[in-house]
């Protein structure tokens, strides 16, 4: 029987929740107990588990599921797959596992090398000076044939040009607007809300002027091509003489990075075709690098902000992960350190 004094001192101490320090110590001990009493026991447990699975895997692969026994199974599966595919093809259904394709770089284009773009690093933005130079290259070279109809002059503001510069650039071209109060369309100088001017009024005109080949719109070209800016850079500088035995049709040019190898676009990037205002050397590889950066930005205008937000998200998530691990261990420490003792008592025989 408890006296009041005995209850308040000893019993309450026993039932009171552990303090923070006790809980932390307790949960540290508890964690060591998941695979054994201490680190040594846990290491032994993992060693045994690894050795056991290795022996089991060796045994199964060499004595139970041997290659000889597996071969007829794989053959049967392959044959039934082929049969199923043929049957399905009769009904006009194309199965996802069709045929193996031989890959040829001559047909699919040579894979571009991976160039060390600074903006490929997770913590780096685009080089905006390079975007600005790249826009100049686009304007003076590429825009002769390629449109960029989804990029507007306002998109340059705060990225590569000031507002007044972008306004001046836009005002260099005339755009059709209207109707006015007489119902007539009229021409006016460009504004920030106008897109980059297209060199041809429509695709047919573009094809007619380029021997049947359509110069693609460059608004999203980095997204639209395998290899993205690596591909653009490699393509721009990859022109060379066709290898022996390869005949390139009249009006086409050989470029190993272009699928099929024969591209209608002639080489356009040469040393010193553009004069940079900021004194950057204007050799061909610099021009190609800048215009590739610009086209990559045009495809991913959110790139800088996205990376920054992503890193912030990772930092916050790491904090929350640490907090939740601690919280779980704090809450579980009561359970992990609980001791249940069975104490057989004396039973009165009836």
């Amino acid at each position: 029987m408890f006296t009041r004094a005995a209850y308040t001192t000893a019993t309450r101490a026993a039932f009171r929740a552990p303090t923070f320090a006790q809980a932390r110590n307790a949960s540290t001990q508890a964690a060591n107990g998941a695979f054994g009493a201490d680190r040594k026991a846990a290491a032994a447990w993992f060693a045994k588990a690894a050795a056991g699975s290795a022996i089991l895997g060796y045994g199964i692969s060499n004595y139970v599921v041997t290659d000889d026994r597996l071969a007829p199974v794989t053959k049967a599966v392959a044959e039934s797959m082929t049969a199923l595919q043929k049957k399905a093809a009769e009904y006009g259904i194309e199965m996802p596992f069709t045929v193996a394709h031989a890959f040829s770089t001559a047909d699919h284009g040579l894979h571009p090398p991976h160039y060390p773009w600074d903006h490929f690093k997770p913590w780096k933005t685009y080089d905006h000076a390079s975007i600005r130079r790249g826009f100049q290259v686009y304007k003076e070279v590429c825009s002769a044939c390629h449109s960029m109809e989804y990029i507007h002059y306002r998109n340059l503001v705060g990225v590569s040009h000031t507002e007044s510069e972008a306004k001046e650039l836009a005002a260099e071209y005339e755009y059709e607007d209207g109707p006015n109060d007489k119902g007539e369309m009229f021409m006016r100088p460009g504004k920030l809300t106008d897109p980059m001017p297209s060199p041809y009024p429509n695709e047919e005109a573009a094809r007619a002027a380029n021997g049947g080949a359509y110069p693609p719109d460059l608004s999203c070209i980095a997204r639209a091509r395998h290899g993205e800016e690596d591909y653009i850079f490699a393509l721009l500088l990859g022109y060379c003489d066709p290898p022996a035995g390869v005949n390139v049709r009249e009006g086409l040019h050989y470029n190993p990075y272009f699928p099929g190898g024969a591209i209608a676009m002639a080489r356009a990037i040469y040393d010193e075709v553009v004069e940079y205002e900021d004194g950057t050397p204007n050799n061909a590889s610099q021009l190609a690098k800048d215009v590739s950066t610009f086209l990559s930005w045009a495809s991913y205008p959110e790139h800088d902000e996205r990376k920054k937000m992503g890193l912030k998200t990772l930092a916050i998530s790491a904090m929350l992960l640490g907090l939740s691990v601690w919280w779980k261990r704090f809450k579980w420490s009561y359970i992990k350190t609980r001791k249940i003792v069975y104490k057989p008592g004396k039973f009165d025989e009836v």
């Binding site: 913590w123 780096k124 933005t125 685009y126 080089d127 905006h128 990225v159 590569s160 000031t162």
Partner: peptide, 16 residues
């Protein structure tokens, strides 16, 4: 980490 790469770093060269 991006010193000299962002627009705000090069803006002063072009602002009139």
């Amino acid at each position: 980490a991006n010193k000299g790469r962002q627009w705000k770093d090069i803006r002063s060269k072009y602002i009139q």
